[in-house]
């Protein structure tokens, strides 16, 4: 089996890795946005709850949380399928990190612009949707790229719950051909290519939608 053959076997798992990553990113985005929005509430119990949420999910190792969800919850009678387990785990962990990024970005938005929208007769919801949200997203881009690539790098944990992605294929290949060095080097290369592609695509999108005076570097 040549190095190319190994690469081909692994690449067949890349689709699942990508699918997993995208699903986890979507979950993380939803969690991060929800937490960031809720944190605008001035109600003390909500604030405390969110501080706790952020501390817990930024402090617990991803692998431990994944095992808690996949192997632990069935003990309480709750069986979570493998794919969903990973999406839930990374959604919560990366969501907690994204929430911090969004919060910081929201503080970078000029309050007076939102006030101007309301002074012109927009509702609070409109000011939020048309002024605050679009600017917040632009300020968050570098942080989001970081977090999304972090998600990609966590996806090999999926093999521990039996999802046939890149790492799982590598592990079933190693005992057959007994060339761990080559196999894991190939795994590294496949991940690196996906990582580079992600960074290139995200950066191109950022450049395409960049607005003078609003990119994070100029903040």
């Amino acid at each position: 089996m040549s190095f190319w053959d190994i690469l081909a076997v692994l690449a067949a798992g890349a689709g699942i890795t990508l699918l997993l990553s995208v699903a986890c990113m979507a979950a993380a985005l939803a969690v991060g946005l929800a937490v960031a929005l809720l944190s605008r509430s001035r109600w003390a119990p909500v604030q405390r709850l969110l501080v706790g949420f952020t501390f817990v999910f930024r402090g617990i190792p991803v692998l431990v949380l994944l095992f808690l969800v996949f192997f632990g919850l069935p003990g309480l009678g709750l069986r979570v399928p493998p794919f969903l387990s990973l999406v839930l785990t990374l959604g919560l962990v990366s969501g907690a990190y994204l929430a911090e990024i969004f919060r910081g970005a929201m503080n970078a938005v000029n309050r007076e612009e939102v006030l101007a929208a309301e002074a012109a007769g927009m509702t609070r919801a409109q000011g939020f949707t048309y002024i605050l949200l679009p600017q917040m997203f632009r300020f968050s881009i570098p942080g989001m790229i970081n977090e999304f690539t972090a998600i990609l790098k966590y996806t090999p944990f999926a093999y521990t719950v039996g999802i046939p992605e890149i790492m799982k294929r590598a592990m079933s290949l190693t005992p057959v051909i007994l060339r761990g060095l080559e196999v894991y080097l190939a795994v590294g290369i496949v991940y690196y290519l996906i990582y580079k592609a992600c960074v290139v695509i995200f950066s191109a999108l950022e450049k395409r939608f960049r607005i003078p005076g609003l990119s994070a570097q100029e903040r």
Binding site: T149, L152, P156, M167, T174, G180, Y191, Y192
Partner: peptide, 18 residues
């Protein structure tokens, strides 16, 4: 650009082959 797990496996399964 690559997962930590890959680095660990490279060392654990790869180095003995050298």
């Amino acid at each position: 650009g690559t997962p930590l797990l890959v680095h660990l496996f490279l060392m654990y399964y790869g180095l003995p082959e050298l």
